[in-house]
Amino acid sequence: MKLRPLHDWVVIERDKPVEGLLWIPDIPVNRGTVTATGPKVKEVSVGHQVQFNPYSGLEVACNGQTWLFINEAEISFINCGGV
């Protein structure tokens, strides 16, 4: 499915939680990869690894895939590697 967000919305595919640990927190993962951006998005691009508030945005599920729709202003930072 091809997504085309409007305005300043960004579509993110969340990273999978790390499995095999003794304790996994109940909060969702707050990292992911940008898969699509709206026309008014200025700072992030498709392919960027970003971090955001784990409870922000709107999750949309379709055909077994889940995406997070989030406003660009809710993204905390772009991961430039090493973290």
Rank of each mutant, 00 (worst) to 15 (best):
N79V: 13
L58K: 15
T66H: 03
P17Y: 02
N53P: 01
P54D: 02
G64T: 13
G20D: 09
K2D: 12
R14A: 02
D26A: 10
H7E: 14
I12A: 03
V29K: 04
V34M: 05
V10H: 14
K2T: 11
L58H: 10
V44T: 04
G81C: 10
K42A: 13
E13A: 13
P39D: 11
N53M: 07
Q51R: 15
K2S: 11
P28D: 03
V41W: 05
S76A: 14
C62W: 10
N71W: 02
Q51V: 14
A61C: 10
G20E: 07
T35F: 00
T33A: 08
G32F: 00
V11C: 12
T33V: 13
T35S: 05
F77C: 12
P25F: 02
E74C: 09
V44S: 00
Q65V: 15
F77T: 09
S76L: 14
I70N: 02
T35C: 04
A61Q: 14
G47D: 04
L22F: 12
V44W: 06
I27L: 01
V50H: 00
S56L: 08
G32R: 03
K16C: 00
T66Q: 14
G81N: 08
F52E: 04
K2N: 14
S45D: 13
E13F: 06
L3F: 10
V10N: 06
T35V: 15
I27F: 06
K2F: 07
E13Q: 15
W23C: 06
G57M: 04
H7F: 14
G82A: 06
E72Y: 03
L6P: 03
D15T: 04
W23A: 13
T66P: 04
F52Q: 00
L21P: 00
G57I: 06
D15K: 01
C62P: 00
R4Y: 12
T33E: 09
L21H: 04
V11F: 01
I70F: 04
G38A: 10
K2I: 10
G81R: 08
A73P: 03
P25V: 11
N63I: 08
H48Y: 11
V44Q: 04
Y55K: 08
E59N: 13
A36M: 05
V83G: 10
K2Q: 13
Q51Y: 08
G32V: 01
G20C: 11
R4E: 11
V29E: 01
V60Q: 12
L3C: 03
P25C: 05
H48V: 03
S76G: 15
G57C: 10
H7P: 02
T66F: 06
P17T: 01
W9L: 13
P5C: 00
V34I: 09
W9T: 08
W23H: 12
S76R: 14
L22M: 09
T35I: 12
S56A: 15
P54W: 01
V50S: 01
S45G: 09
P17N: 05
Q51H: 10
S56T: 08
L3S: 09
L21Q: 09
R31C: 05
A36G: 02
L3Y: 07
W23K: 11
L21K: 12
E19Y: 08
A61R: 13
D15N: 07
I78A: 13
D8Y: 06
L68G: 02
I70L: 05
K40D: 15
V10M: 09
N79E: 12
V44N: 01
F77M: 12
I24V: 15
D15P: 00
V50I: 07
V11H: 02
P25N: 02
